[in-house]
Design a protein around this nucleic acid. Structure first.
Lengths: 343, 343
DNA sequence: TTTTTTTATGCAATCGTTGTCGGCAACGTT
DNA sequence: AACGTTGCCGACAACGATTGCATAAAAAAA
């Protein structure tokens, strides 16, 4: 009933631990008969090698760390499923660490995972991270890191992102074609890559349709929607704007849902008073009132791709690698929340 | 730039590793001056003890494993936040493992976590688990286990659950008081504790209001909503029932959203044709069309409580413990989806 | 028969840390 | 002067597994 070790097997069979170890890994220099004995005994006693001892010895753990802002976000939970699907197939375990958009916690998680000797790191930056020294340091020590979704701009490694520019361009253009002209842009912290790219898509769409850019229509939420009051202030400023927007693009799950709640709370109708398109992977989007138009990211595929990149880095450390930034297509799904009322 | 160990410090300061180790832990038998030297050097070199070596030595890891069906479920992601809030405060890390309602994966996760020497396990059973031997075995080996939400009935340990009976009773009674009489019950696999308790609450409410129980109104989904076709079949059987239900209680996030989608797909209106109350922690419940009436579970608190139980078990292993089953109140929030139309 | 080769196995070091034991000064006590 | 005490520190083993090296016995070659 106790946990059995190589030593126990050795004792039981009157062998040395080295012989047992070699027998278990099928070494050629062990007598086939001995091998059989050891194998059978190990099987019968349900022997499993101690991964901790192996980690200590080999300085690796056959696991990869995932550092993300929030599990309770459809994009990330879908991405995790993609990550796990690849990792398990290639013999790696996945350790998840959420930082709730806090730089401090991102730092702690990173250190923790590095100390536990994860073989590599998959990272989507917290809303507060603009200092990346902790990642750089680990990378120079030889720990492979792949970023996905929220990636740093000046950092040389593999990255996997959605085509934020195109996605937002498409969403904004859709609003324009519906006839909306005063389009607001409610988004994540300004220093994040996703924020920048989406903003550029938005600007480009406006420009291509000769709509002047109105700075006061652009609102950043430095905690990405985690803090209600922050979103509330932003949305209220839009609602009370002297020239109130007739549509709004929202850049994340929390921003979208909170924004919808607030518009509703203020007695305004969607889309009659304010139309809305969200950049979100909400599974309930089609059930919302009104059904939410959304730009969906291929979260699962992004997780898969990032994991493949990472495991390649782990397993071929010497290969001279051209670091890639893979951009995946987004998908605009038009529903009621962005349709110009025909009245 | 390299990872520094106690050995490096010893070498640099011309001491033995034992002295360094003791100095770092502030042992009384070390010269204060030596202590200072070691501390300062360790601080300067940013020394961190290797948790893997410690795990190997002490046969524990200062971390707890969490085994749940699905991260992408509001109840569980909220519970995880509760778990982490307590665990981190008490110096434990949290390792999350999802099994996607599969017994096989639950087994693998359990073995994995046990091998990694987690100090304890927080478990919410997969939809497929009726054999609990793998848990029992670990427990007799001394690994503390606490169950929450989906708990086994015949298992002696701490458990934390929501008051599923009362919650469902309240929801069903609410439907009855609204004037619904043909109330269906769409639920999780029959062998789960939550399924049984909720069903009992449902039956009791019907009975107390003299409504005969109609077996064909009760539909089990053995994968808890993870497989669309399963839910589809169940819901279609309800919709095509010769005496179609005028209301339905749905026992989980996925069941609720899929059920709403299907009712909508079939051209029926909620609540006019079929009213609905969900047992769910969906954050978008109030934004749905129609706004969803829901029984909410105190997920965060359940996670916290379960973690406190677990850490107590871990840290006071000899104490003769009376195992408790803590039942937390649910909360019925009435919105539009369960209101009898006044027409 | 002696020497060489092959086969099969054990010893010991290693990974980073801690605990047990023992040692050696420098005191104080009789 | 002999002994005991205290303060400070180092050597060694251990946790579980792997591996380079040594070595015994057996088989093959001389």
């Amino acid at each position: 009933m106790e946990i059995i070790t190589i030593k126990d097997i050795a004792k039981a069979l009157n062998l040395s631990t080295s012989t047992v170890s070699r027998a278990l890994r099928g070494s050629y220099e062990i007598n086939p008969e001995t091998k059989r004995l050891v194998m059978e005994y190990a099987e019968r006693m349900n022997y499993r090698p101690n991964p901790i001892a192996l980690s200590l010895k080999e300085n690796r753990s056959r696991s990869i760390g995932v550092i993300i802002p929030e599990i309770a976000n459809n994009f990330f939970s879908q991405a995790i499923n993609g990550i796990e699907s690849i990792a398990y197939n290639r013999g790696y375990h996945v350790v998840i660490s959420q930082n709730h958009e806090s730089y401090e916690r991102e730092l702690v998680s990173t250190q923790y995972l590095a100390q536990r000797r994860v073989d590599g790191l998959l990272v989507s930056l917290s809303g507060e991270s603009n200092d990346l020294e902790h990642f750089k340091e680990l990378q120079t020590k030889g720990l492979p890191i792949v970023f996905f979704d929220r990636v740093p701009q000046d950092y040389i490694t593999h990255k996997v992102i959605a085509d934020n520019f195109a996605g937002t361009y498409e969403a904004t253009e859709h609003l324009i074609k519906q006839g909306f002209r005063r389009i607001a842009h409610l988004t994540s912290p300004s220093w994040l890559s996703i924020t920048y790219e989406r903003l550029e898509g938005y600007k480009k769409a406006l420009q291509n349709h000769d709509i002047p850019l109105e700075d006061s229509y652009i609102k950043y939420c430095s905690h990405g929607g985690m803090i209600f009051e922050e979103v509330e202030q932003a949305v209220m400023e839009l609602i009370n704007h002297p020239n109130r927007p007739d549509a709004v693009f929202t850049a994340g799950d929390r921003l979208t849902t909170t924004c919808m709640s607030l518009i509703r709370r203020e007695g305004l109708r969607i889309p009659e008073d304010i139309a809305i398109v969200g950049f979100t992977n909400l599974v309930t989007a089609h059930l919302l009132n009104p059904a939410l138009s959304a730009v969906r990211q291929p979260a699962y595929e992004m997780g898969q791709l990032a994991t493949e990149f990472l495991i390649d880095l782990i397993e071929r450390p010497k290969a001279t690698i051209r670091f890639e930034t893979k951009k995946l297509d987004t998908h605009l799904i038009i529903r009621d929340s962005s349709l110009k009322s025909t009245t």
